[in-house]
Design a protein around this nucleic acid. Structure first.
Lengths: 219, 219
DNA sequence: TAAATTTTTTAGACTCGTCTAAATTTTATA
DNA sequence: TATAAAATTTAGACGAGTCTAAAAAATTTA
C-alpha cells in the first residue's frame, strides 16, 4: 500500500501534533501544512478509509496503530538523513530540516538500511531526537546538552556535537568517554562551568564551552 | 522557475533520447516514460511555453540551450547520487538507477555541492558516464573498459569496477595505479589478453578478466 | 440558555498530469 | 500517386489535491 508524498506529509504532521488522549484538530493540521481546513477534511476522509487515522466529523483525528507506525518510519528516514547531512556533508543543524523533508519521502527500504549502517546505526539525530528503529520503535529518552543540566542531575554521555580531532582528544585527556555516567555536583554561577563526578569516582571541571558539545541521556 | 517532478522527468528523457540533428519523436518519449503519446503532446506544449524545448507539431522536439542545461544539471545529480550509493553505501551498479531516479529530484544546490565535495569531485559515475559540472558542462570523454581498447591506443587508468581487496592488491602487485598511462602494444588474439606499456617503460601482460575491470580514458 | 463567534464540513470549481477515442497529419506501400 | 498504415494531435473525461464560499456544528459569551 504505497502512500503518496502528500499522504505521507499529513501522517507525519498529525504525528507531530499528537498529544496522548487529545485528538488533533483540523485547523492545527491546516496551519502546520500550509493549506486550508477544507483540504484537510478531504484528506482525513481519505486517510480514514486507508485505516491510517481514526476520524470522526467535528471531533478531530488520531493515528491508528498502523498510522503511528507509518509516521515513525517516516520520522526514522527524516532523522537518519539529518544525521547524514550534518555528520557527512557538514551542514549545520539549522539548515538540514528543509532538505530532510524532501529526502524522507524517497522510497527504498534497502537504501535506509544501508544509510543506517553507513552512519553507524545512530540512536539520535543532530537535535538530540531519538531515531526510531526499522520496526518503528523509539527509545523514549531524549538527549540533552550537558550544559543545560542542573545541579544534582545524573546522566550518561551519549553523543558529542563536535567531531573534530582536537575536541575528541581533549575529552580523552579529561577522562570523558561515551557511556560514562555523570553526576552534576555543581553548576558554577559566574561562568556556567560544571563540577561533575565521573562514574561515581573522579571529580572534574568542565567549561560551558565544552559542555555545550556533549549530549547526555538523563536518568 | 521551479520545475515539477514530472517536467524534470520529461526533460531528462528527451535529453537521453536526443541525437545531434534529429528531433526526438513523441512516441519515443511515450515509450520511455511509460505513458501515452497524447500525454506527451500535452507536456511538450507546456515545456515549449517554458522555453525548455523547441516543438513543432508532428515534427518532434529538441531541447533549447536552457533545456539542455536543465537536463545536464539533473543528470549531474543523478550520477553523483549513483556514486554515493555505490561507493559509500555499497550498492551494486545494477541496483542504483531506480533510487537515483528519485534522488535526482531533490531540490538544493547546496546539497549537491556538498555531496560532490564529500565524494571527492568524481568525474565519472559507476557506469563510466561523465558527471557534468555545476554549470552543466560535460567533459566529452567517456570511460572505456580496458578490455575494449584496440592495439596502439593510448589511455589513462581512471577507475576500477571491482573494489575488492584482492583485486586492488593484484593491481598493486602488477604495477597498475589510477592515473598511469598505458599504451596497448598488442591484443593477443586467442585469449584477448593485452600486452601494455605502463608510463612508456615497463611492459606487462594483462588478462582479459582483469582488463574488464579497469576503466580508462582514451587520449 | 440563547445569541454570537469560531471551527469544521460540504459543494462546486480549478490545476496538473493522465487516459481513451476520434480526428488529423505524415510516412510507407502498392 | 493514390491509398493504406502509422504516428501524432485534439477533444473530452478522470483522479488527486487544492481552493473559495456557503452551510452546519461546536464553542464561547452574555
Amino acid at each position: 500500500m504505497g502512500l503518496s508524498f502528500t499522504e505521507e506529509n499529513y501522517i507525519k504532521q498529525i504525528y507531530r501534533l499528537s498529544k496522548p488522549g487529545v485528538p488533533v484538530t483540523t485547523n492545527a493540521i491546516a496551519n502546520c501544512i500550509q493549506t486550508k481546513a477544507s483540504s484537510v477534511t478531504d484528506m482525513l476522509d481519505k486517510l480514514a478509509v486507508k485505516k491510517l487515522v481514526e476520524y470522526e466529523k467535528y471531533k478531530g483525528v488520531s493515528l491508528t496503530t498502523l498510522g503511528k507506525k507509518t509516521a515513525l518510519l517516516i520520522v526514522r528516514k527524516h532523522r537518519l538523513w539529518e544525521v547524514f547531512l550534518v555528520q557527512k556533508l557538514g551542514f549545520t543543524w539549522d539548515k538540514v530540516h528543509e532538505i530532510a523533508e524532501q529526502l524522507e519521502h524517497i522510497q527504498s527500504d534497502e537504501l535506509i538500511d544501508k544509510l543506517d549502517a553507513f552512519l553507524g546505526h545512530p540512536k539520535f539525530d543532530p537535535h538530540g531526537e531519538p531515531i526510531p528503529d526499522a520496526q518503528g520503535k523509539v527509545k523514549n529518552q531524549k538527549l540533552k546538552l550537558l550544559s543545560e543540566c542542573v545541579t544534582g542531575s545524573q546522566c550518561t554521555i551519549t553523543e558529542v556535537n563536535d567531531d573534530s580531532a582536537s575536541f575528541l582528544q581533549h575529552l580523552d585527556k579529561t577522562g570523558l568517554k561515551l557511556g560514562h555516567e555523570l553526576e552534576i555536583a555543581e553548576v558554577v554561577d559566574y561562568d556556567k562551568s560544571l563540577s561533575v563526578v565521573i562514574n561515581g569516582k573522579k571529580n572534574i571541571f568542565i567549561s560551558q564551552h565544552i559542555a555545550k558539545n556533549i549530549l547526555v541521556t538523563l536518568k
